[in-house]
């Protein structure tokens, strides 16, 4: 790939960042001033950002000749992309523009995180990564974590709204109950993907590559902890005491651990330390 194309893709990410940030500000402005123009601009900016984002990812894919999901940079970029995808679907289904304000900070944060990570692309994949399981394991895990990212945004919005309203649920379009419900739906979609993609596909691949399903590798255990937190979230919902605020805290904890697990490559080493 020529330098200019490379340059274009990298600068593309800059534009994507500003578009998402602008969209986020539009949605946040809509919280204060209910004028239709804000979410309309927000949606246009998000869609434009998402389109450019997709082009950049596909461009990198074509340039590398492999799916760009092997380095930390590629992963966080894709995670941000997934979060925006989830948000766009959510906006389409709920027709609730306020969700943009809750979900876009996650995407903006992830792009900012990606910009801190090395974007080098001339990298030899270690043999263990040269497998179609890479595509299954990582892409499904990314979708799951994207859903968790948006759920985390919803939960933060929930806590902010709840502390403002003193837990008195409002009757407006985006009531606490509805926020809680949307968070649950996102986690209910993310959880099976995470279970199958991050844990099971990972274990099956580990069996093929390293000879064992489960080797107590730091990243495996960290992923198990994430899975346990979301398992607790799903089960605890059945108990009245755990609904609302505790559920939101669990959802935020879950995604904080996802990010921790991701960055833990720098701390733990182990078999998953691909930087």
């Amino acid at each position: 790939m020529s330098e200019s194309v490379e340059q274009l893709i990298v600068s593309n990410f800059g534009v994507v960042f500003w578009l998402y940030l602008g969209a986020m500000l539009m949605y946040i402005a809509y919280i204060g001033v209910r004028r239709r123009v804000f979410p309309v601009i927000g949606l246009i900016a998000t869609t434009a950002g998402f389109t450019l984002h997709t082009i950049a990812i596909v461009g990198r894919w074509a340039a590398l000749g492999r799916l760009p999901l092997s380095t930390m940079y590629e992963y966080s970029t894709l995670l941000a992309w997934g979060a925006v995808l989830v948000l766009l679907l959510l906006l389409r289904f709920t027709r609730e523009p306020l969700l943009g304000a809750a979900a876009l900070p996650a995407a903006v944060g992830l792009i900012a995180l990606a910009s801190l990570l090395p974007a080098r692309r001339e990298m030899q994949l270690v043999p263990a990564l040269q497998s179609y399981w890479l595509k299954i394991h990582v892409s499904v895990a990314i979708l799951a974590e994207a859903a968790f990212a948006v759920a985390c945004g919803m939960s933060i919005a929930y806590l902010i709204k709840a502390s403002r309203a003193g837990m008195q649920d409002s009757d407006d379009a985006l009531s606490l109950r509805r926020l809680d419900d949307i968070t649950y739906r996102l986690i209910a979609v993310g959880y099976p993907l995470f279970t199958i993609g991050a844990l099971f596909a990972g274990a099956i691949w580990a069996k093929k590559a390293w000879g064992t399903f489960w080797g107590w590798d730091p990243k495996e255990v960290a992923t198990l902890v994430v899975w346990l937190v979301y398992s607790i979230y799903l089960h605890a919902r059945r108990l009245k005491r755990w609904q609302g605020r505790p559920a939101a805290v669990l959802s935020i904890t879950g995604f904080a651990l996802v990010i921790f697990t991701f960055l833990a490559n720098y701390i733990f080493g182990g078999l998953h330390s691909y930087q």
Partner: peptide, 24 residues
């Protein structure tokens, strides 16, 4: 009981996190 299960879930998550810290 279901509640015991939930408590065990939490304990297992905590134990895994502690083990992770220990192995590091």
């Amino acid at each position: 009981s279901f509640r015991t299960g939930l408590i065990l879930f939490i304990l297992l998550a905590a134990a895994s996190a502690i083990s992770l810290a220990l192995t590091t």
